[in-house]
């Protein structure tokens, strides 16, 4: 596909909405930006995966696309746990938000969070994602 962008190893999608999970996984697979796409229906299951593979860097994501509004553990709560993970992993991983929210408070909170590198609005625009990855 595009030679200009080097393919990253692994992307992690976290979203409670199964339809969106399916759509975005498909968009990512067609965009061909990653070797592997892993997706989780909740923040908890995403965290469990990260903790389980924390000593196997090849299994860990280079990019996380995180939804904000989710039951039980929302995106911000996920980030609270995420930041306590080992530093070597955090330093190599980029967290972005992928949400449809128009809520002013949520948007501002996401922008203010030091662990959030970018806020993508649904529907995920593959070109916007590619442009962003170029800058990394």
């Amino acid at each position: 596909m595009q030679n200009s962008t080097k393919r990253l190893n692994r992307v992690m999608l976290i979203d409670d909405n199964e339809v969106d999970l399916k759509i975005n996984a498909k968009v990512l697979s067609i965009s061909n930006l990653f070797e592997h796409i892993i997706y989780f229906k909740s923040g908890e299951s995403g965290l469990t995966y990260l903790k389980k593979h924390i000593h196997h860097p090849e299994e860990l994501p280079d990019l996380i696309l995180l939804d904000i509004q989710m039951p039980d553990m929302n995106g911000f709560e996920f980030l609270d746990y995420y930041k306590r993970l080992p530093k070597p992993f955090i330093d190599n991983c980029t967290v972005t938000i992928l949400s449809s929210t128009l809520d002013f408070g949520d948007i501002k909170k996401a922008e203010a969070n030091t662990y959030v590198a970018k806020m993508f609005m649904k529907p995920l625009n593959p070109k916007e994602l590619r442009d962003f990855l170029h800058l990394l």
């Binding site: 909405n17 759509i23 968009v27 649904k122 529907p123 593959p126």
Partner: peptide, 9 residues
């Protein structure tokens, strides 16, 4: 937005 995502796909 999901619908729009499907259209994109």
């Amino acid at each position: 937005v999901s619908v729009l995502g499907i259209v994109n796909l």
